[in-house]
Design a protein around this nucleic acid. Sequence first.
DNA 1: TCTGGGGTCCTAGGACCC
DNA 2: TCTGGGGTCCTAGGACCC
Length: 403
Amino acid sequence: MGTEASHGRSILHIDVNSAYLSWTAVEFLAHGRADDIRRIPSAIAGDPRSRHGIILAKSEPAKKYGIKTAMTLAEAQRRCPDLALFPPDHAMYKVYSDRMYALLCEYTDIIERFSIDECWLDYTGSEKIFGPPLEAARAISARIRKELGFTVNIGVSTNKLLAKMASEREKPDKIHTLYPGEIAEKMWPLPTDELFGVGHSTKQALARVGLRTIGDVAHADAVMLRQLLKPVMGQLVHDHANGIDDTPVLREELRAEKSIGHSTTTPRDVTDEEEALRYLLSLSERVGLRLRDAGLEAGVASVELKNKSFYTYRHQKKLPSRVRTTSEIYEAACAIFREMWRGDDLRLIGVSLTDLAPAGARARQISLFEDPEETARGRAIEETQDEIRKKFGRDAIKRGTLV
DNA sequence: TCTGGGGTCCTAGGACCC
DNA sequence: TCTGGGGTCCTAGGACCC
């Protein structure tokens, strides 16, 4: 009982330690920098001059000063005046993420990328080739360190939830198991918000009925939890607290993208429509490029605004016909913006698309006001522009209004 | 010079239809 | 004068994740 052999699946969760910071450190070392920024109080943060000043990742020494992810840079610097800071580089992160993914693919072809720095592996069936899961975890950890230069935490168990909860334990560079027989000892003493799926607001709701640890939730009445947290969340939390999770590890090919969006915090408040529309065009362009790259088209467009008081509102619109081009997206975004904007000073503007499907898969409804030839021409032009951008970079072509 | 950006999923209410 | 009950679609908003 409670041993790996008696359970159906064998799941690993791999989590890069302080991903953005570790990858920056490795990149620096590769380019001849003498010191390792992982050994000093350091962080990756955006630029506060453009209102992007929050901590995205921090080193272990920085953690000792109480620096936390998503903390404002000003607060972090109060806690640690000597904090060494480095800007984010998402293109570089993708390169390191892909390298790790390629290495993990040697151990199984059932891998789910949960984010740029986390993966689940369904290792069931690979035991015959690479040995017991704990041995594989040790081999993976050692190879990532040696071949890629950074460290990971690995959680080993029988489902995704337990594997993830295992990898969240002591960091960095650790391997933990959390088999069903270990739940009471390792998981139940933790506070409720350490349970995957429980955030601030659910923690508060649970505390109001006296539930403070994961064990409290595990032993609570499921009917009561469903009433307290609504059916889905109540059941999920009760299941998770008891280590129950039968969701499969979903390979990338089997996962359909649900939305594509971009948003930007503007360097200064946007107060007039003309400027807002310029942002909408630039965002529509980026979203459109990604949409066409993925070979998709969209049925719903939405615009998100955040004003200077940090109040966020979002409106969406089901489009009369499915869209693909930047001009179609931009047109929809403008219409939504004009309807929703309350005239407040804006600090963030976002555009996103949902109801995605492969281009042409669903019958296109041709609107009475649309000239099919013109639509086709517009699309052909944009596809040529996409090719040029792919070859020469995103800024190779700019619309007159953006220059 | 406080406070990012990318997502997923769930709920509730109104419109509309039979 | 009293006043159904499903079901679907659409939209806004919130919670949660990294």
